[in-house]
Amino acid sequence: MSKPLRLAIFDVDGTLVDSQGDIVAAMAAAFAAVEAPLPSRAEILSIVGLSLDVAMTVLAPARPAGDHKIMVEAYKDAYMRLRAEVGVAQSSPLYPGALDILRRLHGEPEILLGVATGKSKRGLDKLIAGHGLDGLFITQQVADFHPSKPHPSMIHQAMADAGVGPEATVMIGDTSFDMDMAAAAGVTGIGVTWGYHGADRLTAATHLVESYTALPPLLEQIWSIPA
Rank of each mutant, 00 (worst) to 15 (best):
K126I: 14
A158V: 06
S92M: 13
P64V: 07
H106D: 09
V58G: 06
E85V: 03
R122C: 07
D22H: 06
L52N: 01
K76L: 00
A74G: 15
M71F: 03
L102R: 04
S153N: 02
A60Y: 04
Q90K: 14
I23Q: 02
M80R: 11
K121P: 06
G49L: 12
I44S: 08
G66P: 12
L112C: 14
L124I: 00
P93Q: 01
L99V: 12
I128V: 14
I155M: 10
V86E: 11
L136T: 09
D67Y: 03
G66L: 07
R122Y: 09
G21E: 12
D144Y: 07
G97E: 00
L102I: 06
L124Y: 00
S91F: 07
I155D: 10
A74F: 04
R63D: 00
A25N: 10
A60W: 12
T139L: 12
S120M: 00
K69T: 10
G21S: 14
Y75H: 11
D125F: 01
P39Y: 14
V58P: 00
A28M: 12
L99G: 01
R81T: 15
S91R: 08
P152F: 02
K126H: 09
A116F: 12
P150V: 01
V115E: 07
R41S: 13
I47V: 14
S148C: 08
Q140R: 15
L136Y: 05
R63W: 09
L45C: 14
L113T: 15
A116N: 12
A26L: 02
F137T: 09
L59T: 03
F31P: 02
T139C: 15
M71H: 02
L136F: 06
F31N: 07
E43G: 14
A29G: 00
K69P: 06
M154W: 05
A78D: 13
P61I: 04
H146P: 03
M80W: 01
V34W: 15
G135Y: 03
E108P: 06
I101E: 12
L105K: 09
T139W: 08
S91K: 13
A116V: 05
L82P: 09
K121S: 10
G130A: 10
V54K: 03
L52M: 13
Y79E: 13
V86Y: 07
L59V: 01
E110H: 15
A129Q: 13
G130T: 10
R81H: 14
A25I: 07
I23C: 00
K119A: 04
D125Q: 03
H131C: 10
P96K: 03
I111M: 14
V34C: 15
R81M: 10
H151F: 01
V88Q: 14
D100K: 04
S91Q: 07
S51T: 00
Y79H: 12
P61V: 08
A98P: 06
A78W: 02
Y79N: 11
D144S: 09
A65S: 13
L112V: 10
D53C: 05
